[in-house]
């Protein structure tokens, strides 16, 4: 009597009366949580995407200005940060894998490495930003640099600061989440039987990496 396209839920005669979870079992809950995370990442794509749209519009209108202004960004620092973040994604993926295999000590190591690499990212960003402040390469109305004379150049730096700034906030949040994973891993709350938060935080971190993968060439390398 049931049609072929029935949902995942198993039918049990003594259906769960617990209000804690509306799901039949842990697998269904995991699948749902994962999908929820993907939908959340959709919202992040659209939010960052708005900034990329602004970037695209201004770049299309003032390509020469972007050419000139982007030279004031340090490719070496941006490139270093790209490498750092990619490595951190790698360590994160290895940490998730270790948790899934029940290798607690390895998981701790990889989460710790991820946090270390993220801190490197922060440090490099600190140098970059302070250099910009020093040179007067500031957003919009605060722009003060004497060498970069194009009248629209302040807009480039507005975009630079808002895009990398929002990304930075996401890095900080991610670091908090990974630290939380570390704490819970120490407390032996994860393993092959349950690793939902680990996987989902991993997704978040990989997404943060993805955003930088686009930010780096578009801001630092475009030419």
């Amino acid at each position: 009597m049931m049609s072929a396209d029935v949902s995942d839920r198993a039918v049990t005669a003594a259906a769960s009366h617990e209000h804690e979870s509306p799901f039949a079992g842990p697998d269904e809950a995991f699948e749902a949580a994962k999908q929820g995370m993907w939908i959340f990442l959709v919202t992040e794509v659209l939010m960052f995407g708005g900034l990329f749209v602004a970037y695209g519009i201004f770049r299309g209108l003032h390509a020469d200005m972007f050419q000139e202004a982007h030279r004031y960004l340090a490719v070496s620092l941006g490139g270093t940060n790209t490498v750092v973040l990619i490595l951190s994604s790698l360590t994160m993926a290895l940490g998730v894998g270790a948790t899934q295999r029940g290798q607690r000590d390895r998981a701790l190591l990889f989460f710790g490495l991820t946090l270390l690499l993220a801190s490197c990212f922060l440090l490099v960003k600190y140098f970059e930003y302070s250099h910009k402040f020093h040179e007067g390469l500031l957003p919009g109305g605060y722009f003060r640099n004497e060498h970069l004379k194009h009248p629209k150049a302040p807009l480039f730096f507005s975009l630079y600061f808002v895009m990398t700034g929002l990304h930075l906030v996401h890095v900080l949040v991610g670091m908090g989440l990974i630290a939380w994973l570390l704490k819970r891993t120490v407390a032996r709350q994860f393993g092959p039987h349950y690793y939902t938060p680990v996987e989902l935080v991993g997704f978040y971190w990989h997404f943060v990496d993805m955003v930088w993968i686009y930010l780096f060439p578009l801001l630092y390398l475009v030419g």
């Binding site: 009597m1 049931m2 072929a4 029935v6 949902s7 799901f23 749902a32 999908q35 939908i39």
Partner: peptide, 16 residues
């Protein structure tokens, strides 16, 4: 987000 996942994952048996 909650509604989308609910509709995907929590339909009663037979609710195609």
């Amino acid at each position: 987000l909650n509604f989308i996942v609910s509709i995907h994952k929590l339909r009663a048996p037979g609710l195609s």
